[in-house]
Write a protein that binds this DNA or RNA. Sequence first.
DNA 1: CTGAAAGCGCTAACAC
DNA 2: GTGTTAGCGCTTTCAG
Lengths: 335, 335
Amino acid sequence: MERKGKANLEDIAKVTGVSKMTVSRVLRGGQGFSDETRDRVIAAADRMGYVPNRLAAAFNSVQASTLVGICVPRLTSGLFGHVLDGVDRALTRLGYQVMIGCNNHQPLEEEAWLRQVVSWRPAGVILSGRSHTPGAVELLHNAGMPVVEIWDLTTSPIDMSVGFSHYDCGVEVGQFLVRKGRRRAGYVGASSRADVMGQARMEGFSAALVLAGYPLVDREVLLDSPGFYAGYYGLETLLARRPDLDVVYFHNDEMAIGGLAYCQQRGIRVPEDLGIVGWGGMEAASVLPRRLTTTVVPTTLIGKQAAEALVARLKGEPVQDVTVIATRLVPGETG
Amino acid sequence: MERKGKANLEDIAKVTGVSKMTVSRVLRGGQGFSDETRDRVIAAADRMGYVPNRLAAAFNSVQASTLVGICVPRLTSGLFGHVLDGVDRALTRLGYQVMIGCNNHQPLEEEAWLRQVVSWRPAGVILSGRSHTPGAVELLHNAGMPVVEIWDLTTSPIDMSVGFSHYDCGVEVGQFLVRKGRRRAGYVGASSRADVMGQARMEGFSAALVLAGYPLVDREVLLDSPGFYAGYYGLETLLARRPDLDVVYFHNDEMAIGGLAYCQQRGIRVPEDLGIVGWGGMEAASVLPRRLTTTVVPTTLIGKQAAEALVARLKGEPVQDVTVIATRLVPGETG
DNA sequence: CTGAAAGCGCTAACAC
DNA sequence: GTGTTAGCGCTTTCAG
């Protein structure tokens, strides 16, 4: 009865003439069996195409779950693709499996995803951002598993946080531009749904400008997804109102590139007539004839650190609750 | 004993004064209970913060698994980000959870991932490409679950296939360029690890050119990742050997954009002196001052169709084994 | 409409 | 070094 791929511990036990407990021990690579037993068991398992049933294992042993959930705002974002990659690499190496989710920047969708994922009794979850529904927070507290909130740093995390301050990103750009002699700054953003983080960057930017004595002149926030076209038309609209601006900070690199395209078309010289600054450090920005001034976010690192913090907590190793990841304002040729 | 979030069916049964079987039926939304019973059970479950244990459910009922695995070559690829998005949207809507994996273009890594995932008894899996290790194929056959191979179409799939022919993409570009009067074509690629698909495009391209009587003049395939810089230097190298080329087909859009940058720097006029053609339809290509001639791949659609085919098979609905997705050669201003 | 019994495959705990 | 027992939470099956 050695039907390929349907064998369970008991089948192997019968064939090898030991108890299924011994088989279990061998297959999990523990100890408490002779070399000879081990070899026989492994050979049989191999021959019978044994596939462990982790459902059963995780089911009656809390610590056997190697499932980790991660929820990102968008799956099509270049930045979060790298975050995912960092998470996946680290977790795969450590023997975990990754369940994915996407909340489209909406806490409610995150909660819906969480309810599904938690019912699989994962070892832990990684969430993006720090706005969560009360229901999600309660669920997480009751579940009592490690939770890492990434990307948008919070100093009072549900459990742990790995990320950076969007507000500070904005502040840094504001200070930088004033130092470079800019005096009449504008902002072009896009608030697709509940993207609070872009908002935070703008607030930091604005605050820094106020402090320096050259407050934000005007801003244009479109109800659109923050892409190339929104950047193009956003800048057009903004400049129509305030042609006297000398620099514009954009919600992200895609939008900044859209802005650059607008300048090129209108014969606006960058950075002489107008400075252009983006955010995120998207790879495609390297495509431009002139390097975009932007804030580079170490995306893969964030994913990696989040995964490692989660696993450390799982293993009972000491972990700090809040891990600050440094972003880097990279002066290019446009700002 | 109503400790939040730790209740199981039996606890709810006790509180409501029915059997756990009835609770189970109510919570799964079946039938066979009175409205009054239903309301009481649902209220209790709600109050007690009941979280179903799908481990237990899936464990003793093969059909209860709503886990689906998907393995892509790279998590940081813009194209596959959209595929993932298509898969995730469709699957989430249908009540499934998605386990992710990345094989770095290497069948061996795919097999390692599969062994892990299969041990969770998923409802089905989606794989990228059609090269799989014998071990992976055997595992899949024994597991007896739906399998969808996406992206690179195969007419003899393990189970189902959703994708397109890379070879045909190359053929179409070759024919198009000859029609446009190009006579001395080159190719610039990058073979990072085992990327067989770029290879297939080049072969189709080459074959079409031969058939038209203007065979491929030269090619440069770098041992590098297929990005902007590889495109830049690849074109430089190729043109150093064959300055007489009148068009170059690139492995993908990123590389083509690198090639464009090289042309701009050297004062090579595009498309007058040299045609540039990419592949993939990356979004950032819209960033360019002139639209890139390229093949657009309906990435999200592929993901969606794959997910739907998988679920249809699961539900016993009729599905075709092979779904051809049409790509679109989009003439831009560079080819 | 409802309930009781059995068991999924595995591992923790303890015995030998 | 190895085996036995019990039970995880749920669903299937069958009996009312």
